[in-house]
Every structure is written in C-alpha cells, then in structure tokens.
Nucleic acid binder design. Structure first.
Lengths: 212, 212, 212, 212
DNA sequence: TGCTAACCGAGACGGTACGTCGGGTCTTAGT
DNA sequence: ACTAAGACCCGACGTACCGTCTCGGTTAGCA
C-alpha cells in the first residue's frame, strides 16, 4: 500500500539536543555526586528531560556513563613538541590531567568495575574509549619515524603487541598513580615515567640491532 | 576492626567466627553477583548472621569489601627463582592470577572507584592493600642487591620514588591489561613487561653505572 | 460529540467509522481488562486508530466510557405483555441482563464512582444514560393508564417525584443485587421485586385514601 | 537448638498504631482527592509511614479502601423510635448521611466497580461491609415483632430472601438516588421510600394476613 | 486538476505513580 | 552485652500510561 516509509521513519524524530544535554548532565552529576550516588532520575532532571527519554536511549547507568566519559578523552591530542620524548610527556600529562577530573576518574573506574561481569559493557568500553585513543600512539610513532628517531617497524604483528603494551603501561601507570597511590601525576613523575618507557622500549624492541 | 574486650567486659563477647564467615561470604557473593548486585542482606544470609551483626562491625559495603579483598593479596609471595628478572616475572604472574579472579577484580575496582570521592576509604585501601604489598618490591630489591645484580641504593628518597614508580607501573599495567584491554596477562606478556621494566630502570635510575 | 462542519469547512472531514470502531473497542477492552486496566493506548490499538484521533474526540477515559456504555442501554425496550406487572418484570429483567454483562457493570460503576468528584461527568451520565431511559417508565405508565390499570396522574409534580422514586428503586435494587450482593437478578427475584413495588406504589400513590 | 519461637515470634512486631493511621489517612485522601487520584504514596506520607509498610499489610489500593470504608459503616445503629416505620426511616437516613460523605461514596463505588472483575475483592466487600450491616435489618425485625407490628416469620428460608430483598432495595435506592440521580436523600424522600417499602412488604410477604 | 486545510498514523516527549528492592536503623525476644 | 529476626523509614529503581507534541503523508471539497 504505502511504500515511502523506507525503514524507520514515521513518528516524531528523537531530539538531538537531548543526547547532548543528557551526556553533559551525566558528567555534571558525576562531579557533584560520584558514581554510586548518581541516579538516572537526577541526571534526567539536570538535563531537563524525562526519565523515559533517557531510558529510551541508554540501557542503564553503565552504558550512559561510558558514553559520557568517552567524550572526555576525545579532547586528547598529540602535541608536536619536536621530539618523541617530549611528545610522550605531553600526551601523558594531558591524560593525567583528564584523569584528575573527578568525573573521569569516578566514572571510568566504576564502569571498569562493572565490566568485569558484563562482556558487552567491556567491549563497549574497549571500542569507545581504549581503541579510539590508540590513534595517539600510532600518530606518535609515525611522527617519530618521520623525524628519524625510530626505525620503521617491519613486523606488523610485533608492532601491534608493542602498541598494546605501551598503552597498558602508560594508561595503567597513570591510573594507578592517580587513583590508588593517590599521588599527583605531575610533570616530574611523568618525566620519570616516559624516560623509563623510552629506555625500556629502545632496549627491548630492536633487541639484536642496537647494543646501545 | 574491633577491640579485644578493652576493659569493661560484661555481656556476651562477639563471635570471632562471625568475622571469618562474613568475609568469606562477601567474597563468595562477589563471585556470584559482582559488586553492584551484592547486597549486605545477602552477605548476612550467606554468613548465617543477622544484618545487625554485620553493621556492628563494618560501616558499610565499601569497608567490608576492602577487607574481604585485602585478604586475597596476602597470598602473594616472592618466589626465589635465582635472578631478579625471574623473581619479577614470578610475582607479577601471581598478581595477575589473583586479579583474574572475579572477586578480586570486581571488588577492587569498585572500591577504587568509590574511593575517588571518599578520602577515608582511599586511605584504607592504600594501607590495607597497596602499602602492605610493597614489601614484595623491597624484598626483591634486597635479594637482588645480595646477589650483586643491583648496586645498593644510596639515596633513600630516590629509592622511595623508584619503588613507587615500579609499583604503579607493574600494578597499573597488569590491571589495565586484564580489565581494560581484556587481554590475558600470561607468561609471554609478563616477560615482555618485565623486560621493558628492567631495561628502563637500569638505563634510567642509576644513569652512569649500568651497561647491562 | 462533534458539530457537523459548523461554518469553516475546508479540509478532510473526520472519519465516521472511527467513532464506531473506538466505542466498540472500548467495550471490548472493558470486557477483557475492566475499567482500571483499560488504557487509551490499548483502545486506540484495538480500534486501529492513533491515540491522537481518540483524544481529538473525547476528553478522557471517563467521557469515552460513558458514551460506550450509554449505547448499551439503548437496547432496552418495553415489551407489551398485556399487564403492567408483566411489563415491569420484562423491562427489569432486560435491565438486569444488560447489567450482568461485564462491560456494563464495570464501566458503569466506575464512571459513577468518578462522577462523585466531577459534576460535569455526573451530568453527562444523567443525561446520556439515566434520563434517556426514563422513557420506559413513562411509556409503561401511559400504557397502564390506557389499559385502565392506573388512574391518570393529576399532579405533574407528584408524578415526577414518583417516577424518580421508581427509577431509583428499580435501578438501585438491580445494581445492588447484581454487583454487591452478588446474587442473580433472575426471574424469581424480579417477580418479588416488582410485586413489592406495585403493591407499595398502589398503597402509596393515592395518598388521600389512606390516612395512615 | 532453640524451641521457643512458637510460630511467628521473632523480630520487631508490627506497629498497631500504623494500621489506624493508615486507614484514617486513606479516608482523608479520599475526601481530598477521590479514588482515582488517590495514590498509595500519598496515603503513606499522610500517615507518616513508609510506602513499604503499607504494602506489607495491604495488597493494593482496593483492599486498603475496602477496609477504610468498612469502618465508616460501623457507625450505623438502629434508633429505637417506637415504631417500625420510624425505625426504618431513621436508619435509612443515617445510611444516606454516611453515603453523602465523599470518602464513602467515592471509595465504595470504586471498589464495587473493581470488584466486578475480582471475586476475592467482591467477597471481601460482602463480608466486611454488606453482611456486617444486615444486623440492622434483623434487629429491626426482632424489635417490630416484639412490639407486635409484625408476626413472627415462620419460614427461615423465606425470611432470608426477604431480608436480602429489603437490603438490596434500601441500599440500592439510596445509592442510586445519591450518586446517580444526584438528588438529596432527605427526610421527605426517605419517608416516601419507607412508605413504599412497608406497604409493599406488608401486601406481599404475608399475603393473606395484611390487615393494616 | 490541482490547492489546501483538516485529517490521519506513528511515535517521541515531559510527567506522575507504580510496586519492588536495598540501605541502614530500631525493637523485640532469646542466649 | 551479645545474637537472630524482622519491621521500620527512606530513596532509587525501571516500567507503564498519561495527555501533548511533532513528524510525514493522506484525503476530501472547492475552485
């Protein structure tokens, strides 16, 4: 009979503004209340939105917070400071700065905790946050190769393993420093970290070639 | 946790068995339900204890879980494998093994998340879990010095900084690998990690000395 | 319900079929769900109509159900059985039969309950249902007078009062019997009722005769 | 181990005051809001009680309101006015007065409406309200017999049927008059009603006798 | 035949109340 | 003074309907 309802078309379309408002409200609530006292009702109120609207778009607190936090890490960008070491220090410092913000720390750790029992959530975290930021490592390597600081990586498999290890080392160390050891991830600490990292990788990755 | 009937003594003394039962029940509940679905009522039931009893001894869910999880890490011990590298690999692997258990991962991450907004809880985690296990780093260093693998650290302040950094690196990397990257922290990965670590530290901390 | 294109006329006229479908769907929903679980969304779905269409024509659940139920009572008609007593029994039995239908009972009682706090609704019920059926009492009296069973009523005011009383007695008794006492309003019961009624009225209406 | 927990014994006993407060709050809410806008949350608040306490004792709105309304009718008592006619008028007037109160009308009709789809509720209404008040009819008859106004009823079955009919007639008529016809059930109307009733019953039930 | 206004379906929207669940406290009786 | 049991107040949960509001699309009736 009718043909011009291509797939899902009829009815009032979803408000695009609502998404934005809800994610912002979620971050604000994380700042004020932290994960455990954050309620979806409160988020809805802050966003000027009905609770139902929120549930229509996200399955629950976990999914909502993942999205809200993921946006935070999109701010990260690789500074072009002229040397690999400086580049690393710069981006690690940015990461530490973001993680020092209460909405990032509280939200991220909580969803990671939840994800230990929810594979779908774990996957969502990985794609929305982790994989998404590996771009920084890749960019950094490319830039360093261009500068001649690093030889081109011949083996793609090995390269992937190294990127993963770097990421776990950096992200893990910053998180642990900030949240568990309760120390400041300041410039000095970041310098120590990146020095260990660079030296360690230099001496490891191209094992046979460089006797240093 | 509780005093040993300080002075005033009348009345029935607290059951010592209850403490043990409650902590075990807490871990069991963490395994079955995870942090967020764990309820104190359920823990009490599993422990065969009234909710009242539980609240008389712990302030709430957070404190209870910290204690329950802390016990897990007391299992860690430094194997004497003959070389620093092997020692490190051994203990890191143990750590990864414990962290792979659902009650450890779920519980630990959750209380860390909570601790971002609760200084007292953060302190409790630090003393009950983190500082308590730094013994491993210290033992390892001492043993390595005795073997002649490392020179004695002259500067105590510098030594502390290095221990902290090592701890953040190792613990952070394992946690990130296990929970976020969702990769196995297996022997191969641990070998990569400890190689980077040793090389990095050797080339950094005692700059002039070590040619390796 | 709606005017017949009052003056401004352009545009598509309302579907007449929709009204019919909606009222039928309402009765069907009353049968299946009863008043309290009846939802307008469900009625709309059953009628194959959008919720909007429904709200464009009725103010709410109450008004809709009044109209849906009112139609049921238009089925009533006064049988010509030859005697006043038989006529009364016949019509009362019809009334009882209708009231035994779940859509009538459930819907009618519910709107009456609502009407205790809503004068407009009460008026709507009175005009759409009650007054509309008083025709039966008037017809019955006229027929009885024609037969010579009753003397002509001289005083119009008094006549009105009597009609009202009869109506309250009959309708009230049937409703109470059916819904509250949970007894069947069967032929035997109806015979008892109409005998009491006729006797009582006969001894009463012609007041002046009996000094009491 | 323990034996002296006879059946249901352990734990804090239910507050008796809460029941009273809740029923009173229910009636107050009926007055202010009517049935359909009455919410259990609001009743709980008015009663100074948690919603859970309320749900622990009543299955829902219907059951609660039945109990709340039932208490109202316990106020009814048969006045001893010296004659059967006057006794009837007196008690009918009392009944009408109670029914004129908004909490009675709104609540009673609503639960009757609900009861059309819920046999358990219907039974609860019958026992808690209807049967409970038949005492009035029985008392009235006994008193009239003692006065010699009525001959003793020989047949018990017939007596029951008559009592039921009277009850349906009186209660039904008053309800219909008050709620549907929207007329006042005042002294004059009550006199008309009871006259019809007495006459009708006198001429019917003891067919042969009726001297009057 | 083509305009155009009022209609129609679908479905998202801001709300309100639901009935349930868990947190932590308190009141019993029993050890 | 402890314990188990369980009722208590509180507040959040996720769901269901309410009645309103856009949408895109249809369908008379007048020109």
């Amino acid at each position: 009979m009718q043909s011009s309802t291509p797939a899902g078309r009829a009815g009032r379309p979803r408000s695009a503004a609502a998404d934005t408002a809800i994610l912002a409200a979620t971050r604000a609530a994380l700042v004020d209340l932290g994960w455990s006292k954050l309620t979806l009702g409160d988020v809805a109120t802050r966003a000027g939105v009905a609770k139902t609207t929120l549930y229509r778009r996200w399955a629950g607190k976990n999914e909502l917070v993942v999205d809200a936090v993921a946006e935070l890490f999109d701010e990260l960008e690789l500074p072009d400071s002229g040397s690999l070491a400086a580049d690393i220090e710069g981006v690690v410092l940015q990461f530490a700065t973001i993680l020092a913000r209460p909405e990032a720390a509280s939200g991220l750790m909580a969803v990671v905790a939840e994800s230990t029992r929810d594979a779908a959530l774990r996957e969502r975290i990985r794609t929305s946050i982790v994989e998404r930021q590996k771009r920084l490592v890749l960019e950094g390597r490319a830039r360093a190769e261009a500068r001649g600081e690093l030889p081109p990586e011949p083996d793609a498999g090995q390269a992937g393993r190294t990127v993963d290890l770097i990421f776990d080392l950096v992200a893990g160390a910053v998180v642990h420093r900030t949240l568990v050891s309760a120390g400041a991830a300041d410039e000095e600490w970041v310098r120590d970290l990146s020095r260990v990292l660079l030296t360690g990788l230099a001496g490891t990755v191209q094992e046979p070639a460089a006797p240093r």
